[in-house]
Amino acid sequence: MTKQAENVIVGISIGDLNGIGTEVLLKTFEDARMLEFCTPVIFGNFKVLSFIKKTFQLTCNLHGIDTLEQLVIGKINVLNIWKEGVNVDFGKNDETVGKYAIKSFTEAVAALKDNKIDVLVTAPINKYNIQSEDFKFPGHTDYLDQELEGDALMFMVQGDLRVGLLTDHIPVNEVSSHLTEELIRKKILTINTSLKKDFKINKPKIAVLGVNPHSGDNGVIGKEDDVVVKPALKKLFEEGVMVFGPYSADSFFGSGQYEKYDAVIAAYHDQGLIPFKTLSFGNGVNYTAGLEGIRTSPDHGTGYDIAGKGVADNNSFKEAVYLAIDVYHSRQEYAELTKNPLKIREKQEESKKYS
């Protein structure tokens, strides 16, 4: 395998075969221009992907390989990680299909760890049918946190709109018990570093949303914002992190306040994702910040209700590929800059001119 300088190797896990994941990924690479700057390698099975391609009457040319050493730059490579046939039944929840989704994902993560692929893009899984004795994780992010160095953080991205979470896939009634000054500090520092390293923002400005309605109204509607959140933000600000809040979440997005910041951190899943998806649905990307490896995914699920109908929109998946590649190049540039502190200073001075 001879890699061209600008051609990024994009590993792709297939997700739930009965959902829309394989449809949107194949539609993405129908555009031959994608292959000019990246080379996909789909962790799955050539026969299955060929069947799905034929089902949707797609014209992209698939190239089957049995090892990553056989990968061909500029082709849509399908790495055969199993040989047996799989029954694809669009829209059906199937435990067997769930096992293949996880096999694809874990093999792709292993390749990412071994630097055999540059970035990873994951198609949607069904969090219910993936559970087994060998895989007991709520989803992709928790497994990545175990396997890759760093601290995983769900970071939703669409252009300049970036929303991170203090807590993600936990019940609402457990949110308060999970929030500590230590957790808040860790998450904010992770996002601050990601904005610099992955998004080329030299002095990030970060907004934090309050846990309670009206950020607790000085303790009238809950004490978490005053007792836990504010002290954590104060200490970080004193250390030079440009973090602000907590802001009342109900009007923050509607008033356009989010546009003043490089990232917004929500206290829990729906507080952040409802406004994010309202503003960007179909174009957003789920990026796992804070890890050594780069992983993105589309901002939608398996789409069982439209699976097999050929109507799934691939824009979010395409944006996930674009973001993974952008972050890859940003990290390369950041690594070069950190070798030369003078270059960093020059960048900071340059950014001041436009701030």
Results as ranks from 00 to 15, higher is better:
residue 232 A to S: 15
residue 22 T to H: 01
residue 86 V to R: 03
residue 37 F to N: 04
residue 286 N to A: 06
residue 229 V to M: 14
residue 121 V to R: 12
residue 282 G to M: 07
residue 50 S to A: 13
residue 24 V to T: 05
residue 280 S to P: 01
residue 258 Y to C: 03
residue 50 S to K: 14
residue 209 L to K: 12
residue 144 L to M: 15
residue 139 G to E: 05
residue 101 A to N: 11
residue 149 E to W: 00
residue 48 V to K: 14
residue 291 L to M: 09
residue 15 G to F: 06
residue 187 K to G: 07
residue 207 A to R: 07
residue 108 A to K: 08
residue 80 N to G: 09
residue 70 Q to C: 04
residue 112 L to V: 10
residue 87 N to C: 04
residue 97 V to P: 07
residue 355 S to M: 13
residue 210 G to D: 13
residue 198 D to R: 10
residue 39 T to V: 04
residue 214 H to D: 08
residue 34 M to S: 06
residue 174 E to H: 15
residue 24 V to G: 02
residue 71 L to K: 11
residue 328 Y to E: 12
residue 238 E to F: 02
residue 94 D to A: 12
residue 113 K to M: 11
residue 192 N to F: 04
residue 248 S to V: 03
residue 146 Q to R: 13
residue 71 L to Q: 10
residue 298 P to M: 08
residue 243 V to Q: 02
residue 266 A to H: 03
residue 342 L to P: 00
residue 224 E to L: 03
residue 193 T to I: 00
residue 299 D to R: 04
residue 78 V to E: 01
residue 232 A to Q: 08
residue 294 I to Y: 11
residue 193 T to K: 13
residue 125 I to A: 08
residue 222 G to D: 07
residue 107 E to W: 00
residue 96 T to A: 11
residue 46 F to P: 00
residue 352 K to Y: 08
residue 30 E to T: 13
residue 258 Y to M: 01
residue 60 C to W: 00
residue 230 K to S: 10
residue 218 N to F: 14
residue 48 V to H: 03
residue 324 A to C: 07
residue 95 E to L: 13
residue 70 Q to G: 00
residue 19 G to I: 01
residue 167 T to L: 01
residue 309 K to A: 02
residue 33 R to G: 00
residue 201 I to D: 02
residue 246 P to C: 02
residue 134 D to R: 01
residue 78 V to A: 04
residue 252 F to W: 09
residue 233 L to V: 13
residue 212 N to W: 06
residue 152 A to I: 04
residue 279 L to T: 05
residue 43 F to E: 12
residue 184 I to Y: 00
residue 226 D to K: 01
residue 65 I to L: 04
residue 280 S to K: 06
residue 198 D to C: 10
residue 300 H to Y: 09
residue 68 L to H: 05
residue 47 K to H: 11
residue 66 D to G: 15
residue 242 M to D: 07
residue 249 A to T: 09
residue 102 I to E: 12
residue 320 A to G: 03
residue 295 R to W: 08
residue 4 Q to N: 11
residue 295 R to S: 01
residue 190 T to V: 15
residue 170 I to R: 06
